[in-house]
């Protein structure tokens, strides 16, 4: 099993396509960081507009808000919506790409069971996803920390401003990246399932992207009819729950409780739903694959 996994990882990391995602992530992060470095204050003005009447909003204050933690949080907000597309690039190719190259039959006529083959393939996609996230963490989190320094993280929500002191942030990022890994694995699992049905990789990649885009739009739509009926069941609604790690609890006087999470059960529930989707997608993929004629 381990040997097979090594082969899969070798294949993934030997192909140029794999690095598109790493390059894309780096480009987006770099552009955002550069933008924030030179014009971050204008970006903040937009957000701070609604508090500038009641509070002192000096340049020094804005500069403090624009710290590495904040920059990373803003990057994740933008990027984690796009990352599924990058994950689909590899996971969607996983089986279909082999079918297209004619190597799938060669592989399946080796002494490897189909279930084993599928699990190895999927695991390789997950590892790729995790490595992509580690890369993101390196440049978006640690990179921003180096460029912008660290300070209290201020998270602007629609109705509240959540603040957590610098020492209370890092673990939240670890948790958020962990959650993001699960969220992206869900997309990988979907792409993987679609990959089983196709003979070339373009189909599953585009299909995955389309599904994720449509469902994300549905999740973001504010139509009361959908709020209770459809949205709670869409995996895309739960993919953004990593943000929950940055929503804190406060005591009655409004003081942030260090180390607290505002609604941990909601996060865990979302995570449970994602895990259920992963099992459903991967389980179906393996089932279909086992039945399939090659």
């Amino acid at each position: 099993m381990w040997k097979l996994l090594q082969i899969e990882l070798f294949k993934i990391f030997k192909r140029p396509r794999t690095y598109i995602a790493f390059g894309a992530v780096a480009a987006i992060v770099f552009l955002f960081q550069a933008g924030m470095k030179f014009d971050g204050k204008s970006y903040l003005d937009l957000i701070l507009n609604s508090v500038s009447d009641s509070f002192e909003v000096s340049d020094d204050f804005k500069g403090r808000i624009l710290n590495g933690y904040f920059i990373c949080f803003a990057i994740l907000n933008i990027l984690l919506i796009q990352m599924p597309l990058l994950v689909a690039l590899i996971a969607g190719d996983s089986i279909a790409g082999e079918a297209n190259m004619g190597t799938l039959r060669l592989s399946l006529s080796r002494p490897v069971s189909r279930t084993e083959y599928m699990l190895v393939k999927f695991t390789a996609s997950v590892i790729y996803t995790v490595i992509l996230l580690i890369w993101l963490a390196l440049i978006a989190l640690f990179g921003s920390m180096i460029i912008f320094g660290t300070n209290t993280l201020v998270v602007f929500r629609a109705g509240t401003i959540e603040m957590m002191e610098a020492g209370d942030v890092m673990w939240r990022y670890f948790a958020a990246f962990g959650y993001a890994a699960v969220a992206l694995t869900t997309v990988a699992a979907l792409a993987f399932l679609l990959s089983v049905f196709a003979e070339n990789s373009i189909g599953p990649i585009i299909a995955t992207m389309s599904i994720v885009i449509v469902l994300t739009i549905l999740s973001e739509m504010n139509i009361p009819l959908y709020d209770k009926t459809i949205k709670p069941y869409l995996f895309t609604s739960h993919m953004v729950a990593w943000k929950g790690f940055f929503y804190v609890k406060a005591d009655p006087e409004g003081t942030t409780i260090r180390g607290s999470i505002h609604n941990l059960p909601a996060i865990l529930k979302s995570m449970g739903i994602l895990v259920a989707y992963i099992m459903l997608f991967v389980g179906s993929a393996v089932w279909v694959f086992r039945k399939k004629i090659f």
Binding site: S54, F73, A158
Partner: peptide, 21 residues
């Protein structure tokens, strides 16, 4: 002690997600 004005950010600008709470 001071009086505060309403704080409300448009959804497009915020870092929000609806955790149903």
């Amino acid at each position: 002690s001071f009086s505060t004005k309403d704080y409300k950010l448009p959804k497009g600008v915020t870092f929000d997600y609806d955790d149903g709470s």
